[in-house]
């Protein structure tokens, strides 16, 4: 396994940090040669990491909680699956279509999500995912309903790189996509735009009072996040050549939240680290106790919270303090009544 950079990474000097990061990505890439038999698992990890990265953009940077992020994963998966099935398009084009459709729906639903408290956001995001899942179920003529989307044949990338059974092409595609989108996300969060998002996360009332157009910023990042999740879904469809209704399921949304909490929010590597930890645990634990692996991961989460309170606490206090603030507005609506 690639070494897991510590979440205190940001505390290191920039040069040391750069060395660690390059080493991390090189190792992740060299897994193609080091672990040729586990490439399908690695592909799943890369896709989950991308999905978690997309959630981190809204949760870790803008403070938007979501329990329905699978809506965009699912949209992306069906879009790419259908594009390949009916139009035999290049997989890259199919994934681009996924990004477009998910981004569009993300933009449209952002207006529902951005109003209200954390609790309403949780409910609305969940409802959107449920509705889309149900729609996919009902539109059997298009999606195959509960049988899943059968007969997806994915042509080779650019007519040259065929998807092999061992998952080599799949992993390379997912890895490179993750790397590219990670680098873009890193620029984004270090930009003035990214910094204004953090002010909104910490205090939307004050953000507006220093001139930040709060709603516009949130719509933008929510759309970008949806687009990222759509790409994750598109990759899932083209690399597994199959799409079923479970891409919309609540457990997908909950798992990705768990992944991000495991890895930590608000520094972009959290989603990747969490995805590695989650998938490896899933792989090991479901080998030991196939039925109960969620139980073990839950236990681990509790253990992490109790034992590593200081360290882990600092990564997760943000989403958790928000969860605790259920039903309360993000900030007082009065500038201070004493």
């Amino acid at each position: 396994m690639p070494p897991i950079p510590s979440p205190t990474l940001s505390g290191h000097s920039p040069r040391w940090r750069l060395v660690l990061e390059v080493a991390f990505w090189l190792l992740a890439f060299s897994a193609i040669f080091l672990m040729p038999r586990r490439l399908l698992l690695l592909n799943e990890i890369a896709i989950l990491a991308l999905f978690a990265l997309s959630l981190d953009l809204i949760l870790g940077y803008a403070g938007i909680v979501s329990l329905g992020h699978a809506a965009f994963l699912g949209l992306g998966a069906y879009t790419a699956g259908l594009a390949c099935k009916h139009f035999a398009v290049d997989p890259l084009l199919a994934v681009a279509a996924s990004a477009f459709v998910a981004g569009l729906v993300g933009f449209a639903t952002s207006f529902l999500v951005l109003r209200g408290t954390d609790l309403t956001r949780l409910m609305v995001t969940m409802a959107v995912a449920l509705l889309l899942g149900e729609a996919a179920n009902k539109m059997q003529w298009l999606t195959g309903g509960s049988d899943g989307l059968q007969g997806v044949t994915v042509p080779p990338i650019a007519g040259a790189f065929d998807f092999d059974l061992r998952g080599r092409t799949a992993y390379v595609l997912s890895f490179l996509t993750l790397l590219a989108l990670f680098l873009i996300a890193r620029r984004l969060v270090a930009s003035p735009f990214g910094m204004t998002l953090r002010t909104i996360r910490d205090n939307p009332l004050r953000a507006a009072a220093i001139g930040v157009p709060v709603t516009r910023r949130l719509v933008t990042i929510y759309t970008i996040s949806a687009l990222y999740a759509g790409i994750a879904g598109g990759l899932l469809a083209v690399t597994t050549q199959f799409v079923s209704l479970d891409v919309f399921e609540f457990s997908r949304s909950a798992d990705v939240m768990l992944v991000l909490i495991l890895g930590g929010t608000g520094y972009l590597y959290g989603g990747i680290i969490g995805a590695v930890a989650f998938k490896v645990l899933q792989d090991v634990l479901s080998g030991l106790t196939p039925q109960y692996w969620h139980f073990w991961i839950g236990l681990l989460l509790v253990a992490l919270m109790v034992v590593g309170r200081q360290r882990i606490g600092s990564w997760i206090t943000r989403p958790f303090s928000r969860l605790r603030a259920f039903g309360q507005p993000n900030a007082p609506d009065n500038g201070g009544v004493s």
Binding site: R187, L188, A190, S191, P192, F193, G194, M195, T196, T199, A207, I210, G211, V212, P213, R216, R217, T220
Partner: peptide, 20 residues
């Protein structure tokens, strides 16, 4: 904190690919 307020006033608070 101050930087964000300055960025918004300069009209560059929405820039996505410059370095804050």
């Amino acid at each position: 904190t101050i930087g964000v307020a300055v960025a918004q006033r300069l009209g560059i608070g929405g820039r996505m690919f410059s370095h804050f």
